[in-house]
Design a protein around this nucleic acid. Structure first.
Lengths: 147, 147
DNA sequence: CTTAAAACCCACTTTTACCCACCAAGGAAT
DNA sequence: ATTCCTTGGTGGGTAAAAGTGGGTTTTAAG
């Protein structure tokens, strides 16, 4: 099980390739076979799953009923923008243009480790996201994480 | 087991041939023998199954009771427009005119990978489909995919 | 026998993946 | 502290693969 953490400022080149930070790569299990699945995330970022983590997600999707219109809509929409990408010799993955467009990514990216997935943001979008939060981190923490 | 994903904008030529995207082809098992079964899908698109996946579907259909009128209707209608097609040298399948007409496909297609099947849409019809959804993707996701 | 449609083959263009090379940063040894 | 060496990040060229279009032969149908 992956355990990604940390944030990393990286660049993306003209071919749409981004490096996976070495510190995150360390946590990718061998079963992932250097392969990642990239998809739309919530809030205009991209979610990147190592293949083994993705497979668990896929299992849940397969449970859904094909004859249920809502389930169909969900499945199609989720899968529509999901792409597989394998690390190249330089430990980079290539991200399709549509996904870059969705996340508004141009030449710089912010990479976040979020336990089982990696998120890729346009740094500006991420900052706006933080500022758009009505409640403070401390308040939300109290509500969400009661112990 | 197939695991199709992603969306692809392709063209269809005057002979009714469409290319199967390489990224989807990778997931077609050898047992399928380069053969696909094309049929009417839900919501005015076409469903394309590799032969091995189709066989599993066929098994389920065989379970239905021939003495039940509803089952008969379902089985007949499903099979009526199902066609087999084998890849040509350029990894394309030929789609019968009736099916193209059903899906309203002219010269451009949107190909979706949906795990065990491949869907072929007229891009415009697909867009209308998305816009016709009453609920947003995020809401449906939350409802369907609770964790 | 004629004609149309399907299967097959060939050729061109674009995109992708693979390879190589460079630069910067960090750590180790002198 | 200085130098060397390794690891990590970035950029670009090239060969191979993928996508597209069209012509020709074969088969089947009228």
């Amino acid at each position: 099980m992956s355990s990604f953490k940390g944030s990393y400022g990286y660049s993306i080149d003209s071919k749409g390739r981004i490096n996976i930070p070495a510190k995150l790569r360390k946590y990718v299990s061998l079963e992932a076979n250097d392969t990642f699945v990239i998809m739309r995330g919530y809030e205009r970022c991209l979610s990147v799953y190592p293949l083994d983590e993705w497979n668990m997600l896929e299992q849940s999707i397969r449970q859904l009923s094909p004859s249920n219109p809502k389930h169909r809509f969900f499945t199609r929409t989720l899968l529509q923008y999901a792409t597989e990408s394998k690390l190249d010799g330089q430990s980079r993955i290539t991200i399709p243009k549509e996904l870059l467009q969705y996340a508004g990514i141009e030449d710089q990216v912010l990479i976040l480790g979020v336990l089982e997935r990696i998120e890729v943001w346009n740094p500006k979008v991420h900052e706006e996201y933080l500022q758009a939060q009505a409640e403070s981190y401390e308040n939300v923490a109290q509500a969400v994480f009661q112990k």
